[in-house]
Amino acid sequence: MKLDELKAHLKPGRVYRRADLEQWSKSVDRHVQELVKSKVLQKLSQGLYYYSSQTVFGQTPPDEEILVQQFLKDDRFLLMSPNLYNSLGVGTTQLYNKRVVYNHKRHGEFMLGKRTFSFFIKPHFPKKVTKEFLLVDLVNNLENLAEDKEQVLEKVYSKRQFFDVKKLERATKNYGSVKTRKLLGKLLSAESNTAYAI
């Protein structure tokens, strides 16, 4: 049976685009529809499907990195959460139920499976999150924070000694907005821990 031939090629934990499945089926739309109906495949978004792996606890969700890579058809992206700001100790405590994806291709909010991802096109971003990048990113997004912005910025300035100044200078230059470069420029050149208003 042709459907069984298609199923034989599927690997647990993999995310597939419709185009990936075409090589194994001449009736890919009908076969995919049948596999979704029988819950062999889970539809994540238009043209994107997940073949879940089973554990003793049930079906596992797709790995977010794999999911985003297949959605973008590109491995050049940075996946992160605004919750990471809380690790900087600058007064942010809000928990955000979203994932942020910096990339070169897509912009906007997309529901992939049961999760919302906010995609932002950026010319530059690091391969991995560092605390210096996080600080720059936090200041870039200061206006979107739920906390008092001046208090957060004051805490940012008081944390100067906890950052590698050269790494922070580089991150500010590479990833900071014009306003962020101005605000963190004060921090980088500060002789003391004086706070500055926004």
Rank of each mutant, 00 (worst) to 15 (best):
162 F>D: 13
190 A>S: 13
130 T>C: 09
195 A>M: 13
121 I>K: 13
94 Q>R: 08
156 V>F: 05
188 L>M: 01
93 T>P: 04
95 L>D: 12
7 K>P: 11
30 R>G: 15
158 S>Q: 14
168 L>D: 01
101 V>P: 03
171 A>T: 09
20 D>W: 00
77 F>M: 03
19 A>K: 14
149 K>S: 13
95 L>G: 06
75 D>Y: 06
57 F>V: 09
151 Q>T: 10
102 Y>H: 00
158 S>T: 10
190 A>L: 03
49 Y>L: 05
8 A>Q: 10
13 G>R: 00
114 K>N: 14
106 R>I: 11
42 Q>Y: 15
174 N>P: 10
85 Y>K: 03
39 K>A: 12
182 K>W: 12
183 L>V: 07
127 K>M: 08
101 V>I: 13
88 L>G: 09
123 P>A: 02
76 R>T: 12
80 M>G: 06
11 K>Y: 03
134 L>W: 03
82 P>A: 01
141 N>S: 11
146 A>L: 13
136 V>D: 00
110 F>Q: 12
53 S>W: 08
40 V>I: 12
131 K>S: 11
19 A>M: 09
163 F>W: 05
31 H>E: 15
166 K>E: 14
17 R>F: 02
151 Q>G: 10
154 E>F: 14
146 A>P: 05
182 K>L: 14
51 Y>M: 06
83 N>K: 00
93 T>M: 11
41 L>P: 07
40 V>W: 05
83 N>G: 02
158 S>K: 14
